[in-house]
Design a protein around this nucleic acid. Structure first.
Length: 759
DNA sequence: TCGGGGCAGATTTTT
DNA sequence: TCTGCCCCGA
């Protein structure tokens, strides 16, 4: 490692980078150059003669791993250091040592929805009454158990209803996974933990093999992750972790803050380095963040500082309505972009829950501001994609019952519920997989001839597909498409959604092609499928796109933007309703806001609305208690008075005890009001409803296929499909504006034929 | 077997 | 308001 590389570091950074042997804890505040430290440290280790294969760098997201790899590549080109997520690391080890855990190396990894469907089936087949618990609750209880390394046979339910259900279902669910040669996300970690725990020789050899382990975002590790890295750091305790307790926002996923808070007692000889200088934000932003987080008890005190210029004051704005909040923000962005001050990609809007994105989306569209929503429906979770991949998954692991059930009747093959029930019963009694049971369709009692033939046809199809298993992935998927007549179900209709599905399938094929090109020699179907399961949509977040970013506070971690808006700072939303009961969760909500605030480089706007329409109801809000914790005298506190008077009358008589206007309303003491948000309907609402849009503006039958129409919000579009009759007559319109395709019930929509437009 | 309508329920979600 | 699931009718 060259001297000038070291020169570019600050003293504490250099101290961490130069650390070679023994445990290392880097407490890195936001924007303190943490990734830089990790990559430089790896480069330094290599320069000291450590072999690249002896180093493993573990992250939580693929995005972080990619970032790290590309930065390391600039410092130490071509070095074969293992960098990747915990899950990928475990998946790889588990493939190698599958038989230790009763699995075959070609095991399938179930994502959340796959495991939930297996769980639901297990519940149906277990004689339990689910009157007091939802399958989701059972799933999260099992997940909780796995994150605490409690195996199925050791789970004790305790007194509550869910507990006793879980006690009975968990072992069966685990058996079903085993039978299907499959694991869920939590299993990846748990299996590897137990692997290390139960096989001392193996543990020792891995400890020796990975002499230098680096863990990023250590505050987010859960018990299995902690156990894994500890188990591999006994003979060679060169475990280097970086993290920030103040940025731990995944407690609900089992992350244990104690892992980082107690690192020093776990490894007494640890070297601790604090990175407290911030290179990202202005002092104004930092001091707001600092004042907020100081209210947490569970933390290590840190003093953040920066040499950056002061910058603008942080703004705290109270709008009257959620609409006004969104429109004011959109208008502001639009104006600044128009003046050439900034580009759309300089802005981000963060909210606590996805459901809030709609209002902002609408406002952006109205103002003509380009935006992108990060998250939403994930590509690989779309039905058509999961269906198609399920064929490949079943080819790779014929025991994968979830995949079998997903595709056995897709496209429709007249294999219905009743038939499957019999197959499943046969499979269970004979100890077979679903596919094996289907092979014996002729021998299953009570199965009609028609059903048996349909099953036999499916099995024959599957066997034909299986001959291609060693072909390039794109060819395999293409073969599946042509042989299974999978596409036909979407091609037959003129439904636009089917059109979109076909496009998604094309996209999947091109991703497969890409995979084939990247892995000309070492590509396998199994590896391709694993990659697809262990990625997620936010990994594709593209900062290069010149658009305003809309995302949840959780998704914002690790990112930075010149201008940040954090919206809906209201009691019940941030902190979220569900975190009310317990103080630890409240602290986590505070950290969430802290993470959001510290994403901002130059400008930060915090806002709330006095009224918010949510889930179809109009609510009066209560300011977030977090707002009371901020240093108001350093901030610019504003209350917008420009009400949307006509459609949003603010009638003080409804809430005499709660001042609606007036300078001091942001200074309200901590809410003494009942925590339930009040639901109000004004007379004007009711009036509006009555006079509203219930009448058709244009006779539904006046619309015809191909007609050019206009919509107040989305502009010009063309009718590309029509369906239904009378009040249900629905048009699908493709808009020119980039709003894409929308469906409208013609009797209620504001659509008008374009030529007859009159405002 | 299959599709539509009606109804409950609705954080966050690195993998 | 929006979505996903369950049940019923054909």
């Amino acid at each position: 490692m060259t001297a000038d590389l070291l020169q570019s570091l600050t003293d504490p950074q250099r101290e961490a980078v130069l650390h070679v042997d023994g445990p290392l804890l880097v407490l890195a505040g936001p924007g303190s150059g943490k990734t830089r430290v990790i990559t430089h440290r790896i480069a330094h280790l290599l320069s000291q003669g450590v072999r690249p294969t002896q180093i493993a760098a573990l992250t939580f997201t693929n995005k972080a791993a990619d970032e790290m790899r590309s930065r390391l590549d600039r410092l130490a080109p071509g070095e074969n250091v293992w960098i990747g997520t915990f899950h990928r690391f475990c998946a790889r080890l588990l493939r190698q040592y599958a038989e230790y855990r009763g699995l075959q190396p070609n095991y399938t990894i179930y994502d959340t929805s796959d495991s939930l469907s297996l769980l639901k089936r297990t519940i149906r087949e277990t004689d339990v009454q689910l009157t007091h618990a939802t399958p989701e609750q059972v799933a999260s209880a099992i997940s909780w158990a796995k994150n605490h390394l409690i195996e199925a046979d050791r789970y004790v339910g305790g007194v509550n209803a869910t507990g006793s259900i879980v006690e009975r279902v968990y072992p069966k669910y685990q058996a079903a996974l085993q039978q299907a040669n499959a694991v869920d996300f939590d299993d990846l970690l748990m299996h590897v933990t137990l692997l290390l725990k139960e096989n001392e020789e193996l543990r020792a050899s891995l400890d020796e093999r990975f002499r230098y382990i680096l863990v990023d975002e250590y505050q987010d590790t859960n018990l299995p992750q902690y156990a894994i890295v500890r188990a591999m750091s006994i003979q060679y305790p060169n475990l280097g972790v970086t993290g920030d307790p103040d940025q731990s926002i995944y407690g609900w996923r089992g992350a244990n803050l104690k892992n980082i808070l107690e690192f020093e007692s776990d490894f007494p000889a640890v070297k601790v380095v604090r990175l407290e200088q911030n290179y990202r934000s202005t002092p104004n932003i930092l001091s707001v963040a600092d004042a907020l987080i100081a209210n947490n008890k569970q933390r290590k005190k840190k003093s953040l500082f920066t040499d950056n210029p002061a910058g603008k004051a942080v703004r705290m704005i109270q709008y009257s309505t959620h609409k006004e909040e969104a429109q004011a923000i959109a208008a502001r962005i639009s104006a600044q972009v128009a003046q050439g001050k900034r580009r759309p990609r300089d802005y981000a809007i963060f909210y606590r829950i996805n459901a809030l994105s709609r209002t902002f989306e609408d406002a952006m569209r109205q103002q003509g501001v380009p935006y992108m929503i990060v998250s939403g429906v994930e590509f690989y979770h779309r039905k058509e994609i999961k269906d198609l991949l399920a064929y490949a998954l079943l080819m790779n692991n014929p025991r994968d019952d979830v995949a079998f059930e997903r595709i056995v009747n897709v496209p429709k093959r007249a294999i219905g519920k009743a038939t499957l029930l019999k197959v499943r019963l046969h499979a269970a009694t004979e100890g077979l997989s679903m596919l094996e049971a289907a092979r014996e369709a002729g021998m299953i009692d009570g199965l009609g001839n028609r059903a048996a033939v349909a099953l036999a046809k499916f099995v024959a199809l599957f066997d034909r597909l299986s001959t291609k298993i060693n072909d390039p992935v794109e060819e395999i998927l293409g073969f599946v498409l042509s042989e299974s007549e999978f596409k036909r179900q979407y091609e037959a209709t003129d439904d636009v959604e089917d059109q979109t599905r076909l496009e998604n399938i094309e996209e999947l094929l091109s991703s497969a092609r890409e995979y084939d090109t990247e892995h000309p020699h070492d590509g396998t179907l199994e590896h391709y499928l694993e990659e697809k399961t262990l990625v997620n949509e936010t990994d594709d977040f593209d900062a290069e796109m010149d658009r305003v970013t809309l995302m949840t506070l959780h998704a914002a971690k690790g990112l930075e933007f010149p201008v940040v808006h954090i919206v809906a700072l209201e009691q019940g939303l941030l902190p979220h309703e569900r975190s009310r009961e317990n103080p630890e969760q409240l602290e986590e909500e505070r950290r969430l806001l802290f993470v959001g605030i510290t994403r901002a480089e130059e400008e930060l706007d915090l806002s709330m609305a006095r009224y918010r329409d949510f889930r179809g109801k109009r609510n009066m809000t209560i300011p977030s208690p977090f707002l009371m914790e901020l240093p108001r005298d350093e901030m610019e506190v504003t209350e917008e008075q420009t009400a949307f008077a006509p459609d949003f009358p603010l009638d003080e008589s409804f809430f005499p005890e709660f001042p609606i206007s007036g300078q001091r309303s942001l200074d309200l003491p901590r809410p003494a009001l009942p925590s339930a948000v009040t639901n109000i309907r004004t007379a004007a609402d009711l009036l509006g409803e009555r006079e509203g849009d219930a009448q058709p503006r244009v006779e539904p039958n006046a619309f015809v296929q191909g007609m050019v129409v206009t919509h107040d919000e989305y502009g010009l579009g063309k009718i590309i499909a029509l369906s239904g009759e009378g009040a249900k007559r629905t048009a699908t319109v493709r808009f020119a504006s980039g709003a894409g395709e929308k469906k409208f019930r013609l009797a209620y929509s504001p659509l008008r034929p374009a030529n007859s437009s009159r405002s």
